[in-house]
Amino acid sequence: MTIKIECRTIARGVAEGEVLLSGDALSFLGNVDPKTGVVVDPGHAIYGECIKDRILVFPHGKGSTVGSYVIYQLKKNNVSPAAMINIDSEPIVAVGAIISDIPLVDRLDKDPFTIFKNGDRVKVDSTGGFVELMNR
């Protein structure tokens, strides 16, 4: 059974992947290695995890606006997330997602940290304005 959750569209697109939950906000400049997609900040909630091809769920972005270009670099290096889900998007991640063609949504009807577990298969249809939790 799939569960469909309405959300707000920030960057259009459709993608599917396995969920990676990060309770911490993310600064793409500094927290993530743009060559490997691995989170390199030892103090971060998902330190050591690789964000490549994941449905990356985090509260919001933070830090330098150059972070938008780091997201673009991740995409060019084929190590970017498949899609991103925020509680509330802010401009750094929003702009980074748009220039990199990575679907981004926020303000889900249900709290993503309650409804998703790490490894869940999720489809983000940002163009359609919904997220689907598959195979439950």
Binding site: I10, A11, V66, V70, Q73, S89, P91
Partner: peptide, 30 residues
Amino acid sequence: ALGDIYGADGLIPVKSAQIAGVSYKTIGDA
């Protein structure tokens, strides 16, 4: 996207633009 994030009612014309992200030191190859 920025308008939605900040609750804008629409778009307005601007007289000029000044664009950051110029130094190679800052924006890099990406």
